[in-house]
Design a protein around this nucleic acid. Structure first.
Ligand SMILES: [Mn+2]
Ligand SMILES: [Mn+2]
Ligand SMILES: [Zn+2]
Ligand SMILES: [Zn+2]
Lengths: 138, 138
DNA sequence: GAAAAACATGCAACTTAAGTGCAAATCTAT
DNA sequence: ATAGATTTGCACTTAAGTTGCATGTTTTTC
């Protein structure tokens, strides 16, 4: 029961009711969620609170934002199997142009990229657009 | 004089005054432009017209949209040094977190990426965030 | 070359995601 | 218990993107 509570506390997030619910929501979902998705997942709560909650999660390193080219921000829980959040940790994101869903391919890392002289890399995002396995079967 | 006209015609775009100006604007710029950038570059013209012009350019394969994570669409001319617009052609984009500018690194291609079984790739976007050469010197 | 059709432009209005201000509610620490 | 800090909910704002429609311009047809 207190398992999620522990996770939040470890990230210095006070475990309020909504935060516990949102964490569960994100954990039980296997695709990235927009704020609208999250809002639809809760009957009761207010959009602003959900917005600030996801931003708190993001700031505290619990979720990461994904930009899949649709212009609408999506969010997914960080992969906590790797203890360290190094730059090597950067995985690729896949956006399906049929079902519009976006997933983290956490074990597909971004290969090393060489940059022109003078350029310094701090972060990377590799987005692949195409058709996902589910949509491919149909 | 008719050089730009020829380029537009080749892409089945009628060479109106605004279109010629926007093409020139984009060509003489070495960083990707937002619609606001373009708007600021012209004293006279209307935002909607500029919007539809850039969308026409995009549809006809003259420019490509770049999503650099700022949430604001940017545009840059396609690289016409390579005659073919194949999937191999995909280059990487660099967004400087200091000056907020985004550039096409057209000769830095995206390396081959393997996907899980069933996934089909149609397009890719590799975005690197960091500090550009100009900002690095300061 | 005039008329019709097709396309481009400008203005206003709409849509929607994102973000802010502020007061009420809740939680934490003294 | 009280004071201080944080969280929540509601109203409102912002800004990019987009569409409808009337007018202007170019191209095609006859
Ligand atoms: Mn991810
Ligand atoms: Mn580019
Ligand atoms: Zn799909
Ligand atoms: Zn810079």
């Amino acid at each position: 029961m207190g398992e999620i509570e522990e996770v939040l506390k470890k990230h210095h997030i006070r475990p309020t009711a909504i935060r516990l619910l949102m964490y569960k929501y994100l954990r039980d979902r296997n695709v990235a969620a927009t704020l609208n998705d999250i809002e639809s997942g809760f009957d009761k709560s207010d959009r602003t609170t959900l917005y600030r909650t996801i931003k708190t999660f993001e700031k505290k390193g619990l979720v990461h934002q994904i930009n899949d080219g649709t212009g609408i921000a999506k969010y997914a829980l960080d992969d906590k199997t790797t203890g360290t959040t190094a730059l090597q940790d950067l995985h690729l994101h896949f956006h399906c142009i049929k079902c519009n869903e976006t997933v983290c391919l956490t074990d597909h890392k971004i290969p090393h990229i060489s940059l022109p002289k003078g350029y310094l890399s701090k972060d990377m995002n590799l987005l692949v657009k195409g058709v996902c396995d589910k949509c491919n079967l149909k």
